[in-house]
Design a protein around this nucleic acid. Sequence first.
DNA 1: GCTTTCTTACTCGGATACCTACTGTCCGAGTGGAATAGG
DNA 2: CCTATTCCACTCGGACAGTAGGTATCCGAGTAAGAAAGC
Lengths: 162, 162
Amino acid sequence: MRMSEGVEWGLHCCVTLAWLEGEGPVSTARLAASFELPQAYLNKRLQALVRAGILSSTPGARGGFRLARPPERISLMDVVAAIEGTEDAFRCTEIRRKGSGAEAPDREYGRPCGISTAMRKAELAWRRELAAQTLADVIAGTPAAVADRTRRWFASERTPGG
Amino acid sequence: MRMSEGVEWGLHCCVTLAWLEGEGPVSTARLAASFELPQAYLNKRLQALVRAGILSSTPGARGGFRLARPPERISLMDVVAAIEGTEDAFRCTEIRRKGSGAEAPDREYGRPCGISTAMRKAELAWRRELAAQTLADVIAGTPAAVADRTRRWFASERTPGG
DNA sequence: GCTTTCTTACTCGGATACCTACTGTCCGAGTGGAATAGG
DNA sequence: CCTATTCCACTCGGACAGTAGGTATCCGAGTAAGAAAGC
C-alpha cells in the first residue's frame, strides 16, 4: 500500500499558498520551482485540488492558484481525498460468498463480514485523525523562519521566465 | 491508495484456518477452492504469512498450513504488515529541502516537517486500531452458522484432486 | 503378520511473464495585461 | 494626456506515452504417506 506522491506535493503547496496569502495567485511554474518538481505533473494535481474546492485558479497572465478557504477550514483529509480519491484502501470483494459460502442463504449476508467491518473501522480512525488536523495546525507547528524564508524566496523569484 | 487484494485473502484464510483448527493442515488448493481464488498466487501470499510467523507450513502429502498462534494472539495488524509490508503509506521525500528550502541551515531540518508528522500520526491511529483487533474478535462477531457451514464444506471436499 | 524399502503423488517455495495504475510529458484553449494608436 | 483597441505572452486544462508495482502463472525441490516386497 502506497500513497501517491502527489499528496505530499499538494500539502506542501497548500501550506506555501497559505504563507503567500495576500500576494496574489501563485503559478504552477513557481510552485514547481520552489520544490523542484515536474511542472506539468504538479499542475495536474493542483487541478484536482481546484475540482475539490480547496484551491481557486486564476487564468491568464500573472494567474495561478490560491487557497479557496482559510487554512483553518482545510483539513488534511480534504487534501488527501482530493488527490487520492475517497475510496477506501481496503476493498471488500465479498469472497466469503464464493466457493464454500455460495450456498449460504442470502439473509446471512445482510450484514457485512467482520473483516470488512474491522478494516473499515481502522480506516475510519485514520480519516478521523486526518480530518482533525487542519492546514492551520501544521502551519502553527512550523517555525516562523521557514515561512519567512519561503516568502523571501518567492519575492526574489518573481521573474516569470525563471 | 489501494491495499493489496492479498490482505483480504490472508485475513479470510486465517479465519478459516482458525475454524478448522485441530483438523490437521489445510492445503493451498483447498483454501483457494473455498474462495475461488488463483491457487498459485494465494500460495505466494500464504508464504508471506509463514515468513511473518503467523502461519506454519507442513510439507509433503496431506500437508498445508495452520495457524502458528492462537487467534487471540494474531492481530489484524500482523496480517496486514505481513502482506503489505511495514512501510508507511505516506512517505516523506523531504521536498521542503529542495528549491526554496535549499539554503536553510541544516539545524532547521532536525525535526521532521509538520506535514510528515501529521500524516504519521494518522497512520499511527490506523495501525493502533488494527493492532487492537484480533482474529478472535472477528471470529466472535461472526455467526456460528458460518463457521459450521465452512467446516462442513471442508469435510465434504476432502478429495485432493478436487 | 510385521518390518523395511521403494515408489508415488502431493505439498511448499521461488523464479518467470502480464497488466493495471501511477508517473511524467506534451500541446491546445482561454484570459488578463501591456503596448499602441487614435482622439 | 486619456481611452479604446489590438496583440501577445502567460496561464490553466485535458489528452498522450513510459515505467514501477501488483497480479497471475509455471516449474522444480522436498517430504510424508502408502504400497509392495522380504523376513
